Every structure is written in C-alpha cells, then in structure tokens.
Amino acid sequence: MMITLRKLPLAVAVAAGVMSAQAMAVDFHGYARSGIGWTGSGGEQQCFQTTGAQSKYRLGNECETYAELKLGQEVWKEGDKSFYFDTNVAYSVAQQNDWEATDPAFREANVQGKNLIEWLPGSTIWAGKRFYQRHDVHMIDFYYWDISGPGAGLENIDVGFGKLSLAATRSSEAGGSSSFASNNIYDYTNETANDVFDVRLAQMEINPGGTLELGVDYGRANLRDNYRLVDGASKDGWLFTAEHTQSVLKGFNKFVVQYATDSMTSQGKGLSQGSGVAFDNEKFAYNINNNGHMLRILDHGAISMGDNWDMMYVGMYQDINWDNDNGTKWWTVGIRPMYKWTPIMSTVMEIGYDNVESQRTGDKNNQYKITLAQQWQAGDSIWSRPAIRVFATYAKWDEKWGYDYTGNADNNANFGKAVPADFNGGSFGRGDSDEWTFGAQMEIWW
C-alpha cells in the first residue's frame, strides 16, 4: 500500500505532463481588424464602393470589426500518417458601440487525414466545412476562386508533373424550389442545395520560377423529389480557371483567366447560384435568372523594390453578360506602395480606380480612391502583421446608374434591375460627389 501511495504523485505528475503537452499542441490562428473612423462631412466613417463592383480598395476603407478565430489540433499521428481537426468561428459588427450583439458564423469544422492511402503518398483526405484552397486579391479583399463550404475531397495527389485535387462542396439558396400545392400555385419556401464539383491540377512547373494551375468547377441545383425551380432559374454552370504564378522581385505575380457559364457567373468564384427565389410569386422572380457567361482577366501581385520599397498591385477586367441584360462590365486598377522608414514603421499609400458599365443601360459608374496611412507593423514586409495605422482617405465618384429596389417585386416591374440614375424622376446610384474620411485601425493575422 505504501508503495502504491508513493507512486501516486509520480503517476499524477506524468498524467499532468501528458495533458499539458496535449494542451500546448493546440494551434491558434486567425485574422482580425477593428478601429475607429470619422467622415469629413460629419458622423462615423463611411466606406466607398462603386455600385456594381464586387469589391473595394480596402486600405483606410473598412468600416467594421471583423474576426476569424481558428482552433486546430493534430489529434493523432503514427509515422507519417496523421489526423488534424480544424475549426473557425467568424463574426462581424459595425464597430459603433462597446456591446454589439452578433450571431457568430461557424465557418470551418473539418478533419484532414494525411498519408492515409498507401499508394497515394503525400495526399490528404478531408471532410467537413472548410476554407478550400481559396485564391484572392488581398488589397481589394476579392476572392476570385473560392468554393468554401461543407464538403469532402482528396487533395495533393502527386501525379509527377503536378498535384491533383478533387472536391465537392455545397452552397444552399433560400426559397430555391417549390412543391405543387393546388390550382397551379407554387410556394417557393424550400431551400435548394447547390452542389459544386471541383478538379484542380496545381504546382506544374512550366518555366523557371513559374507554376501553372488549372481548374474546372461544375455547379448544379440539386432538387428534392417532386420539387421544381422557378421558370428561367439557372440550373447549372461551369467555371474554368487558369492561373500562372511567377516568382519575381522577392515576391510574386499571378496572371489569371477565368470563364464561367450560367449558374457560375453571378459570384464568379466557383459557387453555383441562380435557383434562389426571393418572392413566393414566380411571376416576379426574374431577378434570379443569371443565365449567360462571364470572362475575367486578372493580374495581381506583391513585389519588393529595394530595401525600403514594397508594393502590391492589381489590374482586372470582368465581363458578365446575362441573357436578362442585367450584367456588368467591370474593370479596376490599383497600387499600394509602402516605404519603410524603419523595420517596424512605414508609410503606405493606396490608389485605386473602378469603372462599372451596366449591360442594360450602357451607362458607367466610376470612382477614384486614395489613402495615405502611417503604419507600425511587426516586420519590414508589406505582409507583416499585426499593424496599427492612422489613415486619411479621399474618394470621388460619378455614378450614372443604379439598381432599382424601390417598393417590392409585386408593385415594381423593374425591381432588382439596373436603371439610369434619374429613372422615373428618382435617384439611383450615388450620383456625382466626393468625400474624405480619417481614422485609426489595427489588422492582424497569425
């Protein structure tokens, strides 16, 4: 008995050590931004985005507190085989008060198993909700290839000249389909599951310092038995992507060409959309029709120009041509140079221009935006974070068209359509004006 009692403290210590080691193995990653800002004409900070554009130049032009908190852990490992559990909870508030209630979004919860298939060394099996191989332009917060959501897949299969990845994910639309009631009355209240099937071939070395990635995505509306879509709904579509990445000037340049059809055009990033119906009456549900095509040509990157200068840049042309004439032509160009006074202090400027032409009206909206920021960051790279910055932003815009969301679809035949700025004596778009804002912001990723 005495021997047992003497061994007990040692056993407890060993158990505590094991539990401590396991606790220390938890990975904590994430992203956050928050700050305070004012508008020159009075009131809180207002942000500037061109009507019809899918993004905006973000430096000194973000008006919310946003965070993603990721917890993950390698829960099992034997040799080169392992299982990893990953989670991500995100939230966004308007940064107007101390207490701002919000419903967090559970954006990731997945398990990734590496090297589980003997004859596919280096590959990963995964299932669950996941940010899946996302491609974006940081300076405009624009995701041009992103099929994230609940799904499953097999990735990084070594095929000799590259890595092959296969995945299936889902994005549902509210009110996407109906069941038959009586007297030809349909009640569009059932969600429609939109499935996306993704095939990618990446890391193909085609020139010194250059790699090529090719991808095909097929999206479709997956209806339940005895349900139907509204007439004209976009049932399926394709997205084709080619991306060349070149190492240059201690950074990279990415050149991207994408072509999409029908349900893959509205978001243009790989998620299927077009079966959703915002109104019970299918007579007024025309606005979900996105049959047509999209072409996107994009070049972006980040480079170092000597010891003291870094720069991000982007140039993009996007043409969404829809059968219902509600598409757009959008082109944007911008730069973000950074001058480093010390390894932790810099001055950053961002200059961006957007131009969006309405397919329906032929009119154009444009905006110039310039931001000057003094910044303190954890390192001497344009990617170094955390960063604390004080900024001043000036924007000038001239908008000739907007979307008509007055009333509702039952009493407005133009609901959701592009109209000229002065349509029917109204005021659509943001008109011709300018404004400036100033404030302070922190940004961090880890």
Rank of each mutant, 00 (worst) to 15 (best):
N291D: 08
W376S: 15
D187Y: 15
Q377R: 04
L239S: 05
S182G: 08
D398Y: 08
R33G: 02
K364E: 00
I344M: 05
D307A: 06
N355K: 09
F279S: 02
M264K: 02
S172F: 02
Q318H: 01
D398N: 08
V75A: 10
A409D: 04
F240L: 05
M19R: 01
W397G: 10
R6H: 03
A278V: 02
T371I: 01
V111G: 14
Q54H: 14
A32T: 02
T102N: 13
D195Y: 13
H29P: 07
L229Q: 04
W76C: 09
V333F: 05
D231E: 10
L229M: 03
D434G: 13
T371P: 15
R224H: 03
A440T: 15
T39K: 07
M349R: 12
R58C: 03
M1L: 13
I125F: 13
N326T: 06
I36N: 07
D422N: 14
V333A: 07
I3F: 11
N324K: 04
W119C: 13
R6P: 03
D325A: 05
D354V: 02
A174D: 06
D307N: 03
S433N: 05
N321K: 06
A221V: 02
S55C: 02
G43R: 00
W309C: 08
K7E: 00
G209V: 12
A260S: 04
H300D: 07
A392S: 10
G37C: 05
G301A: 00
K56E: 14
F415I: 07
F161I: 11
Y84C: 09
A302T: 04
A168S: 12
I140V: 06
L10P: 10
T39R: 10
M349V: 13
W397S: 15
V111L: 15
Y339D: 07
A392E: 11
S92P: 14
T347I: 00
V356F: 11
M24R: 08
F279I: 07
V18A: 08
I382N: 12
I344N: 09
N190D: 05
N308T: 04
I206F: 12
Q203L: 07
C47S: 13
W397C: 05
D410N: 06
Q374K: 15
L223S: 04
M316R: 03
K235R: 10
R220S: 07
N365I: 07
P337Q: 06
V75G: 12
A16E: 03
L298I: 06
T192A: 14
M345I: 05
G149S: 08
A373V: 01
G175C: 11
R360C: 00
K129T: 09
E399D: 04
A67D: 14
G352C: 08
D319Y: 07
Y405N: 07
W330S: 08
S263T: 06
Q95P: 11
N88S: 07
N412K: 08
N156T: 15
N290I: 02
N194I: 12
R336C: 00
M24L: 03
V14G: 04
R130C: 01
G176C: 10
D141N: 06
Y31S: 07
A105S: 11
M316K: 10
N156H: 13
G35C: 03
R430C: 05
K163E: 15
I288V: 08
M19V: 01
G306V: 06
A101D: 14
L8I: 12
G122C: 09
K417N: 08
P420L: 14
M19K: 10
I351L: 07
G122S: 08
N88T: 15
W145L: 12
A16T: 02
G334S: 01
S123A: 13
D432Y: 14
F85Y: 09
T65P: 12
R220L: 10
M312V: 03
R224S: 06
R336S: 03
N222H: 06
R130L: 11
A373T: 00
G52V: 11
D310V: 00
L372I: 11
G151S: 12
A25V: 02
G352S: 10
M264L: 11
L212I: 09
I335M: 04
A387V: 04
R107C: 09
V18G: 08
A168T: 04
D404N: 00
N88D: 02
G315C: 04
L120M: 14
N190S: 10
G292V: 10
L239I: 12
F28L: 04
W445C: 15
G268S: 02
G237D: 00
A193S: 10
E68K: 05
N324D: 04
G426D: 04
V230D: 12
F106I: 09
Y143C: 14
D262N: 06
F83C: 08
L154M: 09
D27A: 07
I206N: 05
A15V: 01
H29Q: 10
N226T: 15
